[in-house]
Simulated assay, not measured.
Amino acid sequence: MTWMPDLDPQPGDAGACDLIDTIIVPRARDLGGFEVRRALPSPKRQMIGPFIFFDQMGPAEFLETGGIDVRPHPHIGLATVTYLFDGEIHHRDSLGSDLPIRPGDLNWMTAGKGIVHSEREDPARRKTRRRIFGIQSWVALPIHAEETAPTFEHVGRANLPVLSDKGASVRVIAGELYGARSPVKTASETIYADISLEAGRSIPIDATHEERALYTVEGEVEISGERFGAGQLLVFKPGDAITVRAAGGPARFLLLGGEPMDGPRHIWWNFVSSSKERIDQAKEDWKQRRFDTVPGDETEFIPLP
């Protein structure tokens, strides 16, 4: 069955400069042996749909030192979205969630009025040579959901829909795409997908979602004759269908976006809110240790900056 229509560009189609609103090339920061590249928030753009934070972790290789070891820390007003291409991270939170995140799995933790979590590597893994590569993103919650009770949802890779056709493979992480829907519940209309293309193959991106962007993960993609390498966030203009082609070899990218957020958001450290006063309250609550603790990881924590 064919799920992907043929939408190759025709002579006279819009050029890439007419389709792309903003190009964000995140700067790399060294966090003790591995790099993090932050695409959002950016001076050029705060949000794309509900996505307000977008970090690429790695790719990096650890020997028997270093690694991921993020002590317990709080969040409000957002959902953290962790998706790995390589490696493993152990997630624990104040709801009692305690499990590893592996490549292709989705961790969707809704902070709401407040949650605490840690992200570490298991001790046995830290004694081996291993890799880490993935994306940590946050989605802002609409105003009506900012103070909801925190929740946690883990969806294994086997339960995320995958579509394959004409040299294209799409894993729908959140939302709906090409008629397939992720089982994860979102507070607002959201699209998030992991797309791989064989060399020379292309895929259409329709204009259903008002705010859309593409983050290049591996290889080069071509849009209306212009090529873009890995590690770039391409923010599309609304209203135009787009065709993305793998140029020169296989390519992989993430498609993200959704409906515009219902107003601006304030972001400070790990807190997101439509209210500055609410963030000030969260600061004081963390300082006074009023947040819940993480079972099995109660000893350490990250102090307020």
Rank of each mutant, 00 (worst) to 15 (best):
A241K: 13
E119R: 07
V184M: 14
R212L: 15
V184C: 13
F291L: 01
A247W: 06
K166T: 13
F51S: 04
K276D: 08
G32H: 04
F54G: 05
P161Q: 10
R92V: 12
H90F: 15
R181C: 06
T65M: 05
V81F: 06
V170A: 03
K166H: 12
P74D: 03
D8L: 10
D30H: 12
S202K: 09
A187Y: 14
W268C: 02
V217I: 03
Q56C: 05
I135V: 07
A60V: 11
G167M: 03
E176F: 07
A187M: 15
V272I: 07
P9V: 07
I143E: 10
L214I: 13
L256Y: 03
F228N: 01
I20E: 02
A16D: 10
G114H: 00
F152D: 12
D6K: 00
D297V: 11
I242G: 08
S164N: 14
H75F: 09
P11A: 00
L7F: 02
I173E: 10
R120G: 09
G296T: 03
A180E: 06
E298F: 08
S275H: 08
G249E: 04
F152I: 12
F34T: 00
G15W: 03
P100T: 12
D206E: 13
P238H: 03
T293S: 15
I135L: 06
D105S: 02
Y215R: 01
Q10S: 00
R125Q: 11
W269K: 00
F34K: 06
R37N: 06
V294G: 05
I20G: 01
A124W: 15
D93R: 12
K166I: 10
D240A: 15
A28G: 11
T299S: 10
N270R: 06
R227H: 00
W269Q: 00
P295C: 09
T22S: 01
H266T: 08
P183A: 13
P204L: 04
D280S: 09
L234P: 02
G219D: 02
S118M: 13
E284F: 05
L19Y: 03
P72K: 00
R212D: 15
P260S: 04
I302W: 08
W269N: 00
S118C: 14
W138L: 02
G200C: 04
I23D: 05
R126A: 02
W138P: 03
M4A: 11
W3V: 14
R102K: 10
P250V: 02
D194G: 13
R102I: 10
P43Y: 08
L256W: 01
L163E: 05
A158G: 10
R181V: 06
I223C: 03
A16G: 10
M57F: 14
I191K: 08
E222R: 02
Q232W: 01
A158M: 14
R120Q: 14
A140W: 07
L160W: 09
P250G: 09
F53E: 01
P100V: 01
L106G: 07
E119Q: 13
P161V: 11
S202H: 13
G225Q: 02
G66T: 07
G49Q: 01
L256N: 06
S137D: 02
G12Y: 04
I48Q: 05
A111K: 03
M57A: 12
R227I: 00
P150M: 15
